[in-house]
């Protein structure tokens, strides 16, 4: 796209949106948010960045192929479910641990890993479609 302002702002906007999407993802368990919404925000960030600066730039920026990201997400979610089996409780039972780092207690859970997987699948699957459409559509 030709607009100079848009091209100048897009990288910052996109990074802020990705950051915000991770925030939304992590707070999702207690406040509005979660992996699905977070993923959608991140996809919009990538779409904006792609429209402004070209698909090649986005592909370089995210380094992995979007489908590989989606695959990793699906894998993480499946593993999150399977950990429960290793702990001898039914598949997908949430498990929680509370390690303390630098005196701060951080709740970690398989549920969170699962939600991160959801986030990655959404980001990967939708952005791969959007990017491949942009690739030829922008000509």
């Amino acid at each position: 796209m030709k607009s100079v302002i848009f091209r100048a702002v897009a990288p910052f906007l996109a990074s802020l949106m990705v950051l915000f999407s991770i925030f939304v993802l992590l707070r999702g368990h207690n406040e509005p948010g979660g992996g699905f919404i977070g993923g959608l925000i991140a996809v919009s960030a990538l779409a904006i960045y792609g429209i402004a600066c070209g698909v090649e730039t986005v592909r370089r920026a995210i380094y992995f192929h979007p489908m590989a990201i989606a695959g990793a997400g699906l894998f993480a979610s499946a593993v999150a479910g399977l950990i429960s089996i290793a702990a001898r409780v039914p598949f997908m039972t949430g498990l929680w641990i509370y390690p303390s780092v630098l005196g701060v207690e951080i709740p970690l859970s398989t549920v969170m890993l699962f939600d991160c997987g959801v986030y990655l699948v959404v980001v990967g699957a939708i952005s791969s479609v959007a990017l491949s459409l942009e690739e030829r559509g922008g000509e």
Partner: peptide, 21 residues
């Protein structure tokens, strides 16, 4: 049980997690 205040999210990732998977 699920240590989450956001019921919608807890349903998605915990109560009905297999569906989401």
């Amino acid at each position: 049980i699920a240590h989450g205040a956001n019921v919608v999210n807890v349903i998605i990732v915990d109560f009905r997690g297999t569906d989401t998977l």
